[in-house]
Amino acid sequence: MDTVTKDDIRKPENLIYKRTNLLTDKTMSYCPGCGHGTTHRIIMEVLEEMGIQEKTIGIAPVGCSVLAYEFMNIDMQQAAHGRAPALATAVKRLMPEKFVFTYQGDGDLAAIGTAETIHACNRGENIVIIFINNGIYGMTGGQMAPTTLPNMKSSTSPYGRDVKLMGNPLKITELVAQLPGTLYVTRQAVHTPAAVRRTKKAIRKAFENQKLNKGLSFVEVVSNCNSGWKMTPNQANEWMVENMFPFYPLGDIKVNED
């Protein structure tokens, strides 16, 4: 066995994993260890595996992932803050043969864009919504988000989120699961290999639903914002498991099989 060298292993026939070509070569602008990059990658892997790059239109939000179109090698539109589901609605209705998804953070989807989110879900638009929930406004420097946990510190809740003063965190994923228009609603994460595999499977299912014209799929990804939380990436993932997951439990919330 000692006779096997690295050169023997590093041969094209032995290649089992490489970065998908559906990501551009551009270095992603996200902080080290941020779950955005992982989620971008697995969405693009799903599109590649389904062979639908040429038919997919992505909608980027405002927030950290405003530049998602720099990294995803597909046609994309950049939406005004919170309006991505309205854009996706129009694109899908005008070009029903295309695949359409939005990629949105918690501020975009669950605060300023609540109306667009609820109504696109309630109309049952045949689109995929990917929702990154890291409990904070990352782009603008770590302010309180609609999903910031009770007592969690942020730059606009420096002593922790006091729900009496600042209101409750919004479990919008549970909320949209109540709507008749949603087909598949799930909450996943990307902090471990197993979690990434499950999330990718969920995203695949979401796009397969769209392919079959079955309706709206909503995939929440609970993610870390280690910069905003002021931790290292691995500490942030541990904190997420201990604090975020009890409040935002992982797993399928709604699966309609018809």
Binding site: I57, Q77, A80, R83, A86, L87, A90, L94, A115, E116
Partner: peptide, 12 residues
């Protein structure tokens, strides 16, 4: 929402 739907449709 309506004007943003217009934005998206025009983008297509």
């Amino acid at each position: 929402a309506a004007i943003n739907m217009v934005y998206a449709g025009a983008s297509c």
